[in-house]
Amino acid sequence: MPRPLNFRQIEAFRAVMQTGTTTAAAAMLHTTQPSISRLLAQMQSASGLKLFDIQKGRLRPTHEARELFQTVQRHFLGLERIEQNVATLRQSGTGELRLGCTPALGLSVMPAVVHAFLQQHPDVHVSLQTIGTPQLREGLLHGQFDLALSTMAMRHPQLDATTLHRGNAVCVMHPAHPLAARKALHVCDLQGQVLLTLHADDEIYLQLQDTMQQHGIAAASTVETTYSATICMLAAQGTGVGVVNPYVAAVFAPQLRTVPLQPRCPVEVVLAFPPQSAPSAMAERFAALLQAHFAALRGAAG
Protein backbone atom coordinates (compact mmCIF):
# COMPACT_ATOMS: atom_id res chain seq x y z
CA MET A 1 0.00 0.00 0.00
CA PRO A 2 1.40 3.44 -0.94
CA ARG A 3 2.60 5.54 1.98
CA PRO A 4 3.17 9.31 2.36
CA LEU A 5 6.52 10.52 1.13
CA ASN A 6 8.79 12.51 3.42
CA PHE A 7 10.84 15.56 2.56
CA ARG A 8 14.23 13.79 2.67
CA GLN A 9 13.07 11.23 0.11
CA ILE A 10 11.75 13.94 -2.22
CA GLU A 11 14.95 15.97 -1.76
CA ALA A 12 17.10 12.95 -2.66
CA PHE A 13 14.92 12.19 -5.71
CA ARG A 14 15.22 15.80 -6.92
CA ALA A 15 19.00 15.80 -6.47
CA VAL A 16 19.38 12.59 -8.50
CA MET A 17 17.17 13.99 -11.26
CA GLN A 18 19.25 17.16 -11.36
CA THR A 19 22.70 15.55 -11.24
CA GLY A 20 22.13 12.19 -12.97
CA THR A 21 23.90 10.00 -10.40
CA THR A 22 23.54 9.06 -6.74
CA THR A 23 27.17 10.02 -6.13
CA ALA A 24 26.69 13.55 -7.45
CA ALA A 25 23.38 13.84 -5.59
CA ALA A 26 25.14 12.84 -2.35
CA ALA A 27 27.74 15.56 -2.88
CA MET A 28 25.01 18.10 -3.60
CA LEU A 29 23.17 17.26 -0.37
CA HIS A 30 26.33 16.78 1.71
CA THR A 31 25.56 13.16 2.52
CA THR A 32 26.70 9.70 1.39
CA GLN A 33 25.91 7.72 -1.74
CA PRO A 34 24.41 4.77 0.23
CA SER A 35 22.11 7.23 2.00
CA ILE A 36 20.82 8.55 -1.32
CA SER A 37 20.30 5.03 -2.67
CA ARG A 38 18.40 4.06 0.49
CA LEU A 39 16.14 7.12 0.27
CA LEU A 40 15.37 6.39 -3.40
CA ALA A 41 14.46 2.80 -2.56
CA GLN A 42 12.20 3.99 0.26
CA MET A 43 10.53 6.49 -2.07
CA GLN A 44 9.86 3.88 -4.74
CA SER A 45 8.42 1.53 -2.13
CA ALA A 46 6.30 4.23 -0.49
CA SER A 47 4.94 5.59 -3.78
CA GLY A 48 4.37 2.26 -5.48
CA LEU A 49 6.05 3.67 -8.58
CA LYS A 50 9.08 2.53 -10.50
CA LEU A 51 11.15 5.69 -10.75
CA PHE A 52 14.49 4.43 -12.10
CA ASP A 53 16.02 1.51 -13.88
CA ILE A 54 19.70 0.77 -14.38
CA GLN A 55 21.29 0.59 -17.82
CA LYS A 56 24.99 -0.10 -18.15
CA GLY A 57 25.50 0.78 -14.51
CA ARG A 58 23.72 4.13 -14.71
CA LEU A 59 20.38 5.22 -13.32
CA ARG A 60 17.77 6.02 -15.92
CA PRO A 61 14.59 7.86 -14.88
CA THR A 62 11.25 6.44 -15.98
CA HIS A 63 8.42 8.42 -17.57
CA GLU A 64 6.72 8.51 -14.14
CA ALA A 65 9.88 9.93 -12.59
CA ARG A 66 10.03 12.72 -15.16
CA GLU A 67 6.36 13.60 -14.57
CA LEU A 68 6.90 13.60 -10.80
CA PHE A 69 10.02 15.71 -11.14
CA GLN A 70 8.04 18.54 -12.80
CA THR A 71 5.74 18.69 -9.76
CA VAL A 72 8.67 18.50 -7.35
CA GLN A 73 10.45 21.31 -9.17
CA ARG A 74 7.45 23.62 -8.88
CA HIS A 75 7.32 22.87 -5.16
CA PHE A 76 11.01 23.57 -4.61
CA LEU A 77 10.94 26.74 -6.71
CA GLY A 78 8.11 27.93 -4.47
CA LEU A 79 10.22 27.18 -1.41
CA GLU A 80 13.17 29.05 -2.92
CA ARG A 81 10.97 32.08 -3.54
CA ILE A 82 9.81 31.93 0.08
CA GLU A 83 13.43 31.79 1.26
CA GLN A 84 14.35 34.73 -0.99
CA ASN A 85 11.41 36.72 0.35
CA VAL A 86 12.41 35.94 3.93
CA ALA A 87 15.96 37.08 3.19
CA THR A 88 14.65 40.32 1.65
CA LEU A 89 12.39 40.97 4.63
CA ARG A 90 15.24 40.24 7.02
CA GLN A 91 17.52 42.66 5.19
CA SER A 92 15.12 45.50 4.37
CA GLY A 93 11.75 44.96 6.02
CA THR A 94 8.89 44.99 3.53
CA GLY A 95 11.09 46.56 0.86
CA GLU A 96 8.66 49.50 0.81
CA LEU A 97 8.02 52.31 3.27
CA ARG A 98 4.84 54.37 2.94
CA LEU A 99 5.12 57.72 4.68
CA GLY A 100 2.58 60.47 5.16
CA CYS A 101 3.14 63.94 6.57
CA THR A 102 1.81 67.46 6.48
CA PRO A 103 3.24 69.69 3.72
CA ALA A 104 5.28 71.82 6.17
CA LEU A 105 7.06 68.74 7.53
CA GLY A 106 7.46 67.36 4.03
CA LEU A 107 9.34 70.52 3.16
CA SER A 108 11.34 70.89 6.37
CA VAL A 109 11.91 67.69 8.36
CA MET A 110 11.30 64.79 6.01
CA PRO A 111 13.95 65.44 3.31
CA ALA A 112 16.85 65.11 5.75
CA VAL A 113 15.38 62.06 7.49
CA VAL A 114 14.46 60.28 4.24
CA HIS A 115 18.00 60.92 2.98
CA ALA A 116 19.51 59.46 6.17
CA PHE A 117 17.18 56.44 5.90
CA LEU A 118 18.13 55.69 2.30
CA GLN A 119 21.81 55.95 3.17
CA GLN A 120 21.21 52.97 5.45
CA HIS A 121 18.63 51.16 3.29
CA PRO A 122 19.27 52.07 -0.37
CA ASP A 123 17.13 49.21 -1.73
CA VAL A 124 13.91 50.24 0.02
CA HIS A 125 11.25 51.96 -2.05
CA VAL A 126 9.96 55.04 -0.20
CA SER A 127 6.57 56.61 -0.90
CA LEU A 128 6.12 60.04 0.71
CA GLN A 129 2.75 61.78 0.53
CA THR A 130 2.24 65.32 1.85
CA ILE A 131 -1.39 65.91 2.75
CA GLY A 132 -3.50 67.46 5.49
CA THR A 133 -3.89 65.98 8.96
CA PRO A 134 -7.50 64.76 8.43
CA GLN A 135 -6.34 62.83 5.35
CA LEU A 136 -3.35 61.45 7.26
CA ARG A 137 -5.65 60.21 9.98
CA GLU A 138 -7.94 58.48 7.49
CA GLY A 139 -4.95 57.01 5.66
CA LEU A 140 -3.63 55.48 8.87
CA LEU A 141 -7.02 54.03 9.77
CA HIS A 142 -7.27 52.43 6.32
CA GLY A 143 -3.70 51.07 6.36
CA GLN A 144 -2.42 53.34 3.58
CA PHE A 145 0.64 54.53 5.53
CA ASP A 146 3.29 52.77 7.59
CA LEU A 147 3.60 55.93 9.70
CA ALA A 148 2.42 59.52 9.60
CA LEU A 149 3.84 62.77 10.96
CA SER A 150 1.88 65.94 11.66
CA THR A 151 2.03 69.28 13.44
CA MET A 152 -1.61 68.86 14.39
CA ALA A 153 -3.11 66.34 16.79
CA MET A 154 -4.38 63.16 15.08
CA ARG A 155 -7.26 62.57 17.46
CA HIS A 156 -8.99 59.21 17.11
CA PRO A 157 -9.68 56.47 19.68
CA GLN A 158 -7.83 53.89 17.56
CA LEU A 159 -4.69 55.99 17.08
CA ASP A 160 -1.94 56.19 19.67
CA ALA A 161 0.11 59.24 18.69
CA THR A 162 3.51 60.05 20.17
CA THR A 163 4.84 63.59 20.54
CA LEU A 164 8.33 63.77 19.02
CA HIS A 165 9.03 67.46 19.51
CA ARG A 166 7.55 70.54 21.13
CA GLY A 167 8.24 74.00 19.79
CA ASN A 168 6.55 77.36 19.41
CA ALA A 169 5.18 79.26 16.44
CA VAL A 170 7.32 82.11 15.15
CA CYS A 171 6.74 85.33 13.25
CA VAL A 172 8.30 85.68 9.80
CA MET A 173 8.73 88.87 7.80
CA HIS A 174 10.94 90.60 5.25
CA PRO A 175 14.29 91.65 6.77
CA ALA A 176 13.39 95.30 5.97
CA HIS A 177 10.00 95.15 7.69
CA PRO A 178 9.55 97.80 10.45
CA LEU A 179 9.21 95.04 13.06
CA ALA A 180 12.22 93.07 11.88
CA ALA A 181 14.59 94.68 14.37
CA ARG A 182 12.66 93.28 17.34
CA LYS A 183 14.13 90.28 19.22
CA ALA A 184 10.60 89.04 19.80
CA LEU A 185 7.09 90.13 18.88
CA HIS A 186 4.16 90.33 21.25
CA VAL A 187 0.75 89.67 19.79
CA CYS A 188 -0.03 93.32 20.47
CA ASP A 189 2.61 94.23 17.87
CA LEU A 190 0.35 92.71 15.22
CA GLN A 191 -2.17 95.54 15.67
CA GLY A 192 -2.77 97.18 12.29
CA GLN A 193 -0.41 94.80 10.44
CA VAL A 194 -1.11 92.76 7.32
CA LEU A 195 -1.34 89.28 8.84
CA LEU A 196 -0.43 86.15 6.89
CA THR A 197 -2.22 83.13 8.37
CA LEU A 198 -3.16 79.55 7.74
CA HIS A 199 -6.72 78.38 7.16
CA ALA A 200 -9.34 78.59 9.88
CA ASP A 201 -9.12 74.97 11.11
CA ASP A 202 -5.35 75.05 11.69
CA GLU A 203 -4.28 74.89 15.33
CA ILE A 204 -1.76 77.75 15.01
CA TYR A 205 -4.47 79.93 13.47
CA LEU A 206 -6.95 79.04 16.22
CA GLN A 207 -4.44 79.77 18.98
CA LEU A 208 -3.40 83.05 17.36
CA GLN A 209 -6.97 84.23 16.88
CA ASP A 210 -7.85 83.39 20.48
CA THR A 211 -4.82 85.29 21.82
CA MET A 212 -5.51 88.31 19.61
CA GLN A 213 -9.12 88.43 20.79
CA GLN A 214 -8.01 88.23 24.42
CA HIS A 215 -5.78 91.28 23.87
CA GLY A 216 -8.24 93.14 21.66
CA ILE A 217 -5.88 93.08 18.66
CA ALA A 218 -7.12 93.48 15.11
CA ALA A 219 -5.02 93.13 11.94
CA ALA A 220 -5.31 95.72 9.19
CA SER A 221 -6.03 92.89 6.78
CA THR A 222 -5.49 89.16 6.52
CA VAL A 223 -4.11 86.91 3.82
CA GLU A 224 -5.21 83.34 4.46
CA THR A 225 -3.58 80.40 2.71
CA THR A 226 -3.32 76.63 2.97
CA TYR A 227 0.45 76.20 3.24
CA SER A 228 3.04 77.54 5.66
CA ALA A 229 5.51 77.69 2.76
CA THR A 230 3.21 80.14 0.96
CA ILE A 231 3.13 82.33 4.06
CA CYS A 232 6.93 82.37 4.10
CA MET A 233 7.13 83.31 0.43
CA LEU A 234 4.57 86.08 0.90
CA ALA A 235 6.53 87.37 3.89
CA ALA A 236 9.73 87.28 1.83
CA GLN A 237 7.99 89.57 -0.68
CA GLY A 238 7.24 92.04 2.11
CA THR A 239 3.48 91.38 2.00
CA GLY A 240 3.06 91.22 5.77
CA VAL A 241 3.86 89.35 8.97
CA GLY A 242 3.29 85.60 8.99
CA VAL A 243 2.91 83.17 11.89
CA VAL A 244 4.13 79.65 11.13
CA ASN A 245 5.68 76.61 12.77
CA PRO A 246 9.43 76.85 13.42
CA TYR A 247 10.30 73.92 11.12
CA VAL A 248 9.18 75.50 7.87
CA ALA A 249 10.49 78.90 9.00
CA ALA A 250 13.97 77.36 9.22
CA VAL A 251 13.80 76.36 5.54
CA PHE A 252 13.24 79.97 4.47
CA ALA A 253 15.58 81.51 7.06
CA PRO A 254 17.98 83.02 4.45
CA GLN A 255 15.12 85.06 2.96
CA LEU A 256 13.31 86.06 6.14
CA ARG A 257 13.64 87.60 9.54
CA THR A 258 12.30 85.09 12.07
CA VAL A 259 11.47 86.11 15.64
CA PRO A 260 9.65 84.41 18.54
CA LEU A 261 6.00 85.20 19.21
CA GLN A 262 4.69 86.05 22.68
CA PRO A 263 2.61 84.78 24.38
CA ARG A 264 3.89 81.45 23.16
CA CYS A 265 1.86 79.50 20.64
CA PRO A 266 2.83 75.82 21.17
CA VAL A 267 3.45 73.53 18.21
CA GLU A 268 3.90 69.77 18.54
CA VAL A 269 5.12 67.20 16.03
CA VAL A 270 3.21 63.95 16.50
CA LEU A 271 3.96 60.51 15.08
CA ALA A 272 1.37 57.77 14.64
CA PHE A 273 1.36 54.23 13.23
CA PRO A 274 -1.62 52.41 11.68
CA PRO A 275 -3.65 50.60 14.35
CA GLN A 276 -4.31 47.41 12.32
CA SER A 277 -0.87 45.85 12.74
CA ALA A 278 2.44 46.18 14.53
CA PRO A 279 4.94 48.56 12.89
CA SER A 280 7.27 47.01 10.32
CA ALA A 281 10.99 46.90 10.97
CA MET A 282 11.46 49.64 8.36
CA ALA A 283 8.85 51.87 9.97
CA GLU A 284 10.50 51.46 13.36
CA ARG A 285 13.92 52.31 11.90
CA PHE A 286 12.52 55.41 10.24
CA ALA A 287 10.83 56.45 13.48
CA ALA A 288 14.17 56.08 15.28
CA LEU A 289 15.77 58.42 12.73
CA LEU A 290 12.97 60.93 13.29
CA GLN A 291 13.58 60.79 17.03
CA ALA A 292 17.30 61.34 16.47
CA HIS A 293 16.56 64.30 14.19
CA PHE A 294 14.40 66.03 16.79
CA ALA A 295 16.82 65.18 19.58
CA ALA A 296 19.49 67.02 17.57
CA LEU A 297 17.15 70.01 17.24
CA ARG A 298 16.64 70.08 21.00
CA GLY A 299 20.38 69.87 21.53
CA ALA A 300 21.02 72.74 19.15
CA ALA A 301 18.34 74.86 20.85
CA GLY A 302 19.69 74.04 24.33
Rank of each mutant, 00 (worst) to 15 (best):
G48C: 06
E96I: 14
D53H: 12
G78K: 07
G20F: 13
G48A: 06
L49T: 07
L39E: 10
L40R: 00
L40A: 04
T94N: 03
Q91W: 08
A26Q: 05
A26N: 04
Q33P: 00
R14N: 03
F52G: 07
A12S: 15
T31F: 04
E67A: 06
Q55Y: 04
F76M: 13
M43I: 02
Q84Y: 00
F13H: 06
F7W: 11
T19N: 10
M28R: 15
M17H: 00
Q84E: 14
T22G: 10
A24Y: 06
F7D: 14
Q55L: 06
Q70D: 04
A12C: 11
Q84C: 00
M43C: 05
F69Q: 03
Q55V: 13
R38I: 11
G20M: 09
L40C: 05
E67S: 02
A15R: 12
I10P: 00
L77S: 04
M17Q: 07
K50S: 14
K56F: 08
T23V: 13
Q55C: 02
E80T: 10
A46F: 07
L39G: 00
I82N: 00
G48Q: 07
L77R: 07
F7R: 14
A46T: 01
Q42F: 09
V16D: 12
E64S: 12
T22S: 13
Q84P: 00
T62K: 01
G48F: 05
I54T: 15
Q91H: 13
G57N: 08
L77E: 12
A12E: 12
A24R: 13
Q18P: 00
G57R: 05
T31P: 00
A25T: 11
T94V: 02
A65R: 10
L29G: 05
A46Y: 08
F7H: 12
A26G: 02
I82G: 00
A87N: 01
Q73D: 08
R38W: 12
V72M: 04
T32W: 03
T22M: 14
Q73K: 06
T88W: 02
L77F: 03
T21G: 01
R60H: 13
T62R: 01
M43P: 01
V16M: 10
H30K: 11
A65W: 15
Q84T: 05
R90I: 05
A26Y: 09
E83Y: 06
V86D: 07
A41T: 13
A24M: 10
R60C: 13
H30W: 09
L29K: 04
L77Y: 03
F52Y: 15
I36C: 06
R81I: 06
T62F: 03
R90A: 15
T19Y: 11
S37Q: 11
A41H: 08
S92K: 02
A87E: 12
Q91P: 00
Q55W: 02
D53N: 10
G95I: 11
L79I: 07
S45F: 02
S35Y: 15
N85E: 15
A25G: 07
E64T: 10
A24F: 08
H75C: 03
H75K: 01
R60G: 03
E80N: 09
F13A: 05
Q44N: 04
T23W: 11
A24T: 03
S92R: 06
